[in-house]
Write a protein that binds this DNA or RNA. Structure first.
Length: 342
DNA sequence: CGCCTAATAT
DNA sequence: AATATTAGGC
């Protein structure tokens, strides 16, 4: 190890040797199966919010992914300056002028993040440009990368890409809140993703609702109700009789299994979109562990050990304790969905 | 006002 | 199709 790290002559030009290196490199990469399980979530959103746990610049695999992505798709231009990840913790506006305008200028969502003491609720979010820019604006960038460097201040933020990870987080939060209590602002806060704006969430939520609606329609009129499993959960009713005002604040949607596409993490056309946003901040506690976006499978397994000494119980159970039932359902739904996708 | 949602635009 | 932006209504 270490030998490959020093591929320097690289910029000299592309040669046969490079190809080999690339292949080798690729071989060493985890395959889709390994990458997929990038889940985290569970519990923390609420706690995080409650405790004002703020996001911190933790990043790891994400950057790796990002970097690899850049490497791969970067044939037509220089790589993104994702080195700027560090500054994410500042609300400021001009940390990184290069592609920062997105800062939160247009985002006044949190005017009151305020200045109380100046050190807590930094919902401060901003997307990393790089994250989104890459997969979404790629084409454009390639074509004309000349107009953006000078008009930096008027730059528009790149479109948010709802990566499977992001979507999962979204789903988890919605599950916690219950579809009924899920409104953009709240979701956004619980998701706790830097750079995510209320508008982003609102838009996605709208889409998600449409999706649910479709689902609902289908499940009702479909040949036969195939998912009693979920239907039997305490969830359904809330959906059905919305009249039940103010009772269990934990309503929830019932199985979102169909293709709200975003979940198609799997391998598709070797396209691999894992740009993920900036992970929220977890803040690992003793008994609890919040998982940032970037946890790998190993880490995931870890938690059962970490979260508590009970080793056998399903992670879900452990985390849930009494935190929220919906969370489990969310997990299950996701699982089912993923299975179904195959 | 701020936020939410539906409609519309890109 | 996926997101963003706008328009209206609380």
């Amino acid at each position: 190890m270490g030998e490959e790290m020093q591929m320097n002559g690289y910029e000299e030009g592309l040669g046969a040797g490079d190809e080999d290196q690339v292949l080798k490199w690729e071989a060493g990469l985890p395959n889709a199966d390994d990458l997929t399980p990038l889940s985290q979530s569970l519990i923390p959103p609420e706690l995080a919010l409650a405790f004002s746990i703020s996001p911190d610049p933790s990043r790891t695999m994400l950057d790796v992914n990002l970097a690899s992505q850049n490497t791969l798709s970067n044939l037509c231009r220089q790589s993104q300056p994702f080195s700027s990840n560090h500054l994410k913790s500042l609300p400021s506006f001009a940390e990184d002028p290069s592609h920062d305008p997105l800062v939160v200028e247009g985002d006044e969502n949190e005017p009151e993040s305020t200045t109380n003491d100046g050190s807590d609720v930094r919902k401060v979010r901003r997307l990393d440009g790089a994250e989104v820019a890459d997969s979404t604006m790629q084409t454009e960038n390639c074509d004309n990368n000349n107009n953006d460097d000078n008009s930096a201040r008027t730059l528009k933020k790149p479109r948010l890409v709802w990566t499977p990870q992001l979507h999962k987080r979204f789903i988890d939060v919605v599950a916690h809140l219950g579809i009924k209590n899920s409104v953009p602002k709240t979701i956004m806060q619980l998701m706790n993703v830097e750079g995510l704006t209320r508008e982003n969430v609102a838009s996605h939520l709208q889409k998600y609702r449409l999706y649910l609606k479709r689902m609902q329609g289908l499940s009702n009129e479909g040949p036969f109700s195939s998912d009693h499993l979920f239907a039997s959960t305490p969830v359904l009713q809330s959906f059905h009789e919305s009249g039940n005002s103010g009772h269990m604040p934990l309503p929830m949607y019932h199985r979102p299994l169909l293709p709200m596409p975003v979940l198609g993490i799997a391998h598709g056309h070797g396209h691999m979109t894992i740009p993920v946003g900036n992970p929220p901040a977890p803040a690992t506690h003793h008994g609890f562990e919040s998982h940032p976006y970037n946890i790998s499978r190993e880490q995931q397994q870890d938690w059962s050990a970490t979260g508590r000494t009970a080793s056998a119980a399903p992670s879900t159970m452990i985390c849930m304790e009494e935190t929220s039932v919906p969370a489990i359902q969310s997990q299950i739904s996701l699982f089912i969905f993923l299975s179904a996708c195959k």
